[in-house]
Design a protein around this nucleic acid. Structure first.
Lengths: 217, 217
DNA sequence: AGTATATTCAATAGATCTATTGAATGATAT
DNA sequence: ATATCATTCAATAGATCTATTGAATATACT
C-alpha cells in the first residue's frame, strides 16, 4: 500500500527542511543572499572545499532553495526566490524565541558588542532622507558592488580603523552587512563607539531590504 | 580553534530544521496544531508505535518546536508557539512554489477533488455573518471538541454520507479540517458536490485561524 | 591538440538518523 | 504491596548524511 498523498507532500517538505539541516548550507544561503556566485568564489567565502561546496549546492538545488545558470565556464548559483528568505526568517524566529542556547550565544557574543535595538528599515529611510545618518556597508567590496543600500558608503570591516577619517564628521552611523547574524556590523559598531562615533546597526541586510520592496543600488 | 559565533547560531537553527526533516514529525505537528495530546493518543493519530512517537516528540522538544506538561500519568504535548506554525507555513510555501513533485501531487490528488480556490478567513467571516454558508468541521469528534471555528457543525468525514440530511438545506457549505494538506475537507467537498450540494473548502485549519487572531469555540 | 580552470561525480569512512524491541520508570488503581 | 497503564530509555540494525579524495567532464585559452 502506497503512502497517503498527504505524507507524500510532507516527505517533500521534510526534504526541504533537511536541506536547511546543516550550518554550512545556511551560511551558503546567507552568501547567496548578497547576489549570485560561482562555486569557487562561494567556497572561498564559506571556507569549504570546492567539492564539498558543490555537494551542498546540489542538495540545496534539489530542495528548490537555489537555482543555477551557466555563464561560460562558470556555474552561477542564486537564491531561488524570496520565499527562501522568508523561510530562513521563520527558522531564525523560532530559534531566537525557543532555544536557550541561541539566547546564550546572542547575549554572550552579539549583544555584548551591541545591546542596542537595531534600526528598522523605516527609521533608516526617515533619518537618511533627513540627512541625519551615514549609511555604512561593512561587507567586502565585491559584495557591495553586487548590490547595496541607496547612498551607502562601503568601508569593509578590516579597513575601518585606517579609514575612520572618512566618516569622522558623521552625526550618526548606521552600519549593515549580510544579514541578522553576520558579525561584521556588530564589530563595526563596537569599533566605532570605541572611537567616540555614534553608531547603530540596521536590523538585517540587503536580501531582507530587497524582499521588503525597498530600492537598491 | 572554536567555531565562530555565527556558525554556532547556524548550527542551532540547523538542528531545528533537522527536526522538521521527517514527514512523521511534520504530521505530528499538524495534529498538535489541533490541541495538546498525550503520546499514546498521538501515536494512534499518526499511525506510529508509542515508542517511536515518543522518540520523535523528544526530538521536536529539544528543537524548541513543542512543549510538554504532566497531567497525572499522562504527558501532554503541544506546539511551543505560533512561530512554529509560521515556520511550517513558510516551509509549505517554498515546497508549493519551488518543487515540481509537490505541484504534481497537488494536481493529481488534491486539485482533482477540489480545483476551486479555497475560501479565505475574511470571506468565511462575511458569508457566515450574512447567514449565507454552513461551516462544516469534518475532523473526528475529539478534535472538534478540543477547539473549532465559531458556529461550526461537526460531521466527521466517515459519517458524512449517513448524515447528509443535516445539511441538505444549506445554501453553501464551507468545510475545513486540520490544515492546508489534510485530505478530509477535500474528500468532503468532493462527496458533497457529488450529491448536488454547493461546497468549498476553507484555505487552512484551526491552528492558522487561531494564529490570525480569530475567535474559536 | 594540449593545457588550465571550474565544476561535478563516484567511492569511501565515519557520523547521524530512524524504527524496532524489550526493559525501566513513574503514576494510578486495587 | 501488586498490577496496570503511560511513557521513556537503551541497544541494535539498517539507512542516510557529510567531508574527503581522486577522477571525470565542460569550457576557455594558447
Amino acid at each position: 500500500m502506497s503512502t497517503s498523498p498527504k505524507l507524500k507532500l510532507y516527505e517533500e517538505f521534510a526534504a526541504i527542511a533537511r536541506a536547511l539541516g546543516n550550518a554550512h548550507r545556511i551560511d551558503i544561503l546567507e552568501h547567496l543572499g548578497q547576489g549570485e556566485r560561482g562555486v569557487d568564489a562561494l567556497a572561498a567565502k564559506v571556507g569549504l572545499s570546492t567539492a564539498n561546496t558543490s555537494q551542498h549546492l546540489q542538495h540545496l538545488k534539489r530542495a528548490g532553495l537555489v537555482d543555477s545558470r551557466r555563464e561560460g565556464k562558470y556555474i552561477l548559483y542564486r537564491l531561488k526566490d524570496d520565499n527562501v528568505l522568508a523561510l530562513l526568517g521563520a527558522l531564525f524566529d523560532v530559534g531566537e524565541k525557543n532555544l536557550a542556547e541561541v539566547d546564550k550565544v546572542l547575549r554572550d557574543y552579539f549583544h555584548q558588542r551591541d545591546d542596542m535595538e537595531p534600526v528598522s528599515h523605516q527609521e533608516l529611510l526617515e533619518r537618511s532622507r533627513a540627512g541625519l545618518v551615514t549609511v555604512l556597508d561593512v561587507r567586502p567590496k565585491d559584495e557591495y558592488e553586487m548590490e547595496h543600500l541607496p547612498g551607502a558608503k562601503n568601508i569593509p570591516l578590516e579597513e575601518l580603523e585606517s579609514r575612520l577619517s572618512e566618516i569622522a564628521d558623521a552625526q550618526e552611523v548606521i552600519a549593515y552587512c549580510r544579514g541578522p547574524y553576520c558579525v561584521l556590523s556588530y564589530e563595526a559598531v563596537a569599533a566605532l563607539r570605541k572611537r567616540g562615533i555614534r553608531a547603530r546597526r540596521l536590523e538585517d541586510g540587503v536580501p531582507e531590504w530587497r524582499a521588503a520592496g525597498l530600492p537598491l543600488e
